[in-house]
Design a protein around this nucleic acid. Structure first.
Lengths: 351, 351
DNA sequence: ATCACTTCTGGGAGCGCTCCCACTCTACTC
DNA sequence: GAGTAGAGTGGGAGCGCTCCCAGAAGTGAT
């Protein structure tokens, strides 16, 4: 007689007695191994056994227990989406929502789960690594990591695959998915040139942000391609906020009153610029054309609606997952996994 | 000789050999049970043992293996945030972002993980229940569930605690956290009345949505409280989209050209109304005052900026988690868990 | 019929925890 | 000094899987 009856033989904690793999095996008249093989799509199973198991699974409504599987297999079947959330409420931006949608969509085709982690304090940041290390996730998607953030390197050291959205700097080593910021900016400015604008100003993001420098680079490329000299007086630095956009526009107006176009490195800054232009009595787009970047909802609600550069945000989310899964599968080789997706200019009334 | 050397004694799959509870026990010179007790904060541990274990944990950098814990304890230490995502890209709305932030913030204090699940097809919807049932989560947060959706009842039948954000209908039985839609609408309309507006129109949401009827009810209450008769001609039905707002405004203008105020049940519809008013040559707020609902970013970027009713969205997220954890803890009693949070009127230039 | 493969298959062992029983101490009480 | 509670503790059993090793069955060549 076995010594086992202090606990009810039925499942203890969880929701009602879900069937186990063992029960499926019994019902199908096969061994556990065979059921496991069928569940995991091994081809080392006879058709007969397969059908028997599949029927049993259906009849019992069997769903594998994730924890048990993770424990036995040593993998988590989950990836984490980590979003550092500094003072600004970055996550509120539709940009992130779109990324999440893409991620979720692509992940739905796997049976991996999506674990959402917002980091809102340095303390949480520290605990994160420990959390992630405890065999809880197979990989990490990092959104909006800033230059100098040690997280990617920490993950790499732990051997945890990771993917960034956006490069932290030129020559980013960690796998990433980015949009073609330079090309997008260039297209925007070329559009302005094509419309006959002569004095095209730009409001950039902070100089130490790589996106910002890419977009500025695009602006320069377009000017150069059109054989125009670049006038430093037409470049003002913003900080990706509306207020920053206002200040920068003010500055530009003072320095170069004759400007007839502005390319802002973000829609929000463009919105700020629009306000200043109006206050200064300049009509948009007649006297000054304005183009933004991102094609956020804001762009549709400014007056006039903003011409802007659209990023394939959702697709970026999807691509991130593909790159990550790739990295998880190839566990060893740190093969170059860099994806840059094209942007698209959306022309509206502002320029 | 034991029969165990076909597999390396070291951990197999996962990232490098993380220490196990057993190793911590050995190092601290205690049994597994004691370590477990310390980790889980039991008070049945002597100070001496506790310190020894704590030191060992620190020295080894021990982090409990989640899968093992879940398997042994029969609980998942995770909750799912389920977001049905119909045609409209609901998730992009800042509203959801804010909910997520609240949820995440509140959850960070527990050691539960947040699992994000977007449902974008009926097929995914069907698979969801099976997924959730496999002991994968301890509870479910449901965002934006529509009337007639069987999900909450399915979860209840499975014994899985769930919390809704927003009621599906009056007398909602499932635990929920909602904002005071009626009160918010009432405050908005009272504000309009207080500013001396005489013919106050309203653009409502779809009649079959409970939120919509609540906001309409608030409109009515305010009129009644001011002893004003309600004019059906001043009520137009929208659908929470910008286009719907435009149509409704058009309709109102045709029916009641003399109206001098509009309360729209959402900012987006208010934005649409604003466009129509401008096209019709009406100045806002001089000739017509406009108030929206939600205080979304759109409200800050319309021209003029929109007076709107702010919901404590992030706090709603937090409250949802609290209610859910409560439900998980009290596994049996389906005690009334209904929370309604107050709103706040944010006055801007539009009315 | 025999041997060597190849394909399938059952089931033991073990993943790292939590639970809980049995047991050892201490500190009181009478 | 025996008797009775606790308070603390160790460790066996088991959670539901995956892995992998032996074998059983089937196939073809000799």
């Amino acid at each position: 007689m076995a010594v086992r009856d202090r606990r009810t033989p039925v499942t203890r904690g969880g929701r009602g007695g879900r069937p186990t793999l063992e029960q499926v095996a019994a019902r199908a008249g096969v061994g556990r191994g065979t059921v496991s093989r069928v569940i995991n799509g091994s081809d080392q199973v006879s058709e007969q056994a397969r059908t028997a198991v599949e029927r049993a699974v259906a009849e019992l409504g069997y769903v594998p227990n994730r924890a048990a599987r993770a424990l036995a297999a040593g993998s988590a079947d989950a990836v984490a989406l980590v979003i550092p959330e500094p003072e600004t409420r970055l996550f509120s931006e539709p940009y992130f929502s779109d990324i999440v949608r893409g991620v979720s969509a692509e992940l739905a085709e796997t049976d991996k789960q999506l674990l959402l982690t917002l980091i809102r304090s340095p303390r949480e940041r520290e605990r994160l690594a420990a959390y992630l290390s405890a065999d809880r996730v197979d990989g990490v998607l990092l959104v909006s990591v800033h230059e100098g953030d040690p997280l990617p390197e920490m993950l790499a050291a732990m051997g945890l695959p990771a993917v960034l959205n956006g490069r932290r700097a030129a020559g980013e080593a960690v796998p990433y998915v980015d949009s073609d910021n330079t090309g997008g900016a260039r297209a925007a400015v070329e559009h302005l040139i094509g419309r006959g604008r002569g004095a095209i100003a730009t409001i950039t993001g902070p100089a130490d942000m790589y996106v910002a420098s890419c977009r500025l680079e695009g602006y320069r490329q377009a000017l150069k391609a059109a054989d125009r000299a670049e006038d430093p007086g037409l470049v003002a630095v913003g900080d990706f906020t509306e207020e920053g956009g206002r200040r920068a526009m003010q500055e530009l107006l003072e320095r170069r009153p004759a400007l007839d176009a502005v390319f802002a490195a973000s829609d929000v800054m463009a919105a700020g610029a629009l306000q200043v232009l109006r206050a200064a009595g300049r009509t948009v787009p007649d006297e000054v054309a304005v183009v933004g970047f991102e094609d956020s909802p804001v762009a549709r609600h400014t007056d006039p609606p903003l011409t802007s550069v659209r990023q394939p945000t959702e697709e970026m989310g999807r691509a991130m997952v593909r790159v990550l899964l790739d990295g998880i599968a190839a566990k060893d080789a740190t093969r170059e996994r860099h994806v840059v997706l094209p942007t698209e200019l959306v022309v509206r009334a502002s320029g």
